[in-house]
Computed example of a mutant assay.
Amino acid sequence: MVTIKDVAKEAEVSVATVSRVLNNQGYVGEDTRGKVEEAIRRLKYRPNNVARSLFKKKSKMIGFIVPDITNPYFPQLVRAVEDVTNKAEYTTFLCNSDEDIKKELMYIQKMQENHIDGVIIVSNTLQLHHLENLDLPIVALDRFFHKNIPSVTIDNYKEARKAVSYMIKIGCKSIAHIKGPDNIVNSVLRLKAYEDEMRECNLPAIICSGGYQFKESEKAMINLFKTNPGIDGVFAGNDVMAVGALKAANRLNLKVPEDLAIVGFDGIEWTETVSPEITTMVQPIYQMGKRAANMLLHLIDGKELEDMHVVFKTELTIRETTKA
């Protein structure tokens, strides 16, 4: 393998001079620069990115930790982040954590070893003490992490209440909620919103757990109908579970929306690819990912943020799983 020392020897200059040419740092005479560039071409030298990052103090890489890459919500976030960072000539180091603290800590260690310039996290397991000694910018996405960590989120409680309120307004009297995992803040806030809205309207709370998963939510809804056959509406804690509820309705020969109204949350593309198309609270997923990426690049450049915590609004998008 050709090294920087080989290039220096071929060009009859010092290693420091070759480094200045490679990184475009400091003064190098035109004749000397030409000799170095010719030696690089002749020897087909490819600079070591890690070595260059040590010299420049930047690796041009960012880390992105997501909990479940199989959930269509997260690839849409990843796409937005990459669109922004690629334009800035950064590479995204994508990590799927499964909400496993050991995996997340391992990823962070690897990021440090590779001199990552900054990281975007979607995590409910990491705590502030895991990150406060890291000497790199961090932005939390989708979930508020800590007042000292910049974040891009939505108001899950407020927006979920809008969804349940809408279902009541269209005439649903027995609304079930498929909740997500108990350890995920978004899931807990959406559940609380459902419970508070139902209590204030003097309606019974009917709850089952779908774990933010398709198959799990389908089974949960089938079992729930055995004990609550009068359910006329389902508010799902995310769109994946809303699709599971729709599948359960088909298996139970229930007509949607005539027998059962379904409302999801997130706004992933799945909601438009099934039939009937699912009414849902649409998050501006792309805009959220884009904002988080721009915030991180801003921090990497040593600039202060105008707004540490950005909260986006959702939009109720009415489709075929609810009656007018």
Rank of each mutant, 00 (worst) to 15 (best):
L316G: 04
L77F: 15
I285E: 15
N223E: 02
Y286Q: 02
A160S: 13
A16H: 09
I138A: 03
R161E: 15
R291Y: 11
K179V: 00
F312E: 03
I175D: 08
I154N: 08
V311F: 01
F55N: 10
L131K: 13
D196I: 02
T70Y: 05
N253I: 00
K35T: 03
N48C: 08
V84H: 08
G230F: 02
E89P: 07
V240K: 15
G118E: 11
E113P: 12
T227N: 09
D232L: 00
K56I: 00
G233W: 07
K219D: 06
V139E: 12
A249E: 13
M288E: 14
V122R: 07
K219H: 10
E315A: 04
V282H: 15
E218V: 00
K192N: 13
M281G: 07
E200R: 11
A160T: 10
D259H: 08
E272Y: 11
I116Q: 02
I168M: 12
I170G: 00
M295P: 14
M308G: 00
Q287E: 15
A8G: 08
E320V: 00
R143E: 06
D68F: 11
E258L: 02
D307F: 00
V164N: 13
I268N: 15
R79G: 11
N96V: 03
S187D: 02
F74D: 07
M288A: 09
D6Q: 07
E195C: 05
V311N: 14
V274A: 06
P181Y: 05
E258M: 04
K103T: 07
K215A: 05
E197Q: 11
G211H: 06
K58S: 10
A80N: 12
T273W: 15
G211L: 01
N183I: 05
A236G: 06
K323P: 07
E82N: 05
I121M: 11
S187H: 02
L141G: 12
G118I: 10
K110L: 14
M198Y: 12
G237L: 00
Q76D: 15
T317E: 08
A11P: 06
G34H: 10
A51W: 15
D31N: 11
L105D: 13
N133S: 15
I4H: 13
G63N: 07
V28R: 11
I168G: 12
K303I: 01
K173V: 01
E159H: 03
Q127D: 14
L224S: 04
G211R: 02
Q76P: 10
R319N: 04
I40W: 13
V240H: 15
H146P: 01
V50I: 15
N250I: 04
I138M: 05
V13Y: 10
N114D: 10
E269Y: 09
V21T: 14
V256H: 07
E197A: 06
E320G: 03
I121W: 07
R46D: 04
A205N: 12
K313Y: 10
T279W: 12
G264V: 05
P67Y: 11
S59H: 08
P150W: 07
E159R: 04
T227E: 12
T227G: 03
E30Q: 02
I262F: 06
S209N: 06
A245T: 10
Q112D: 07
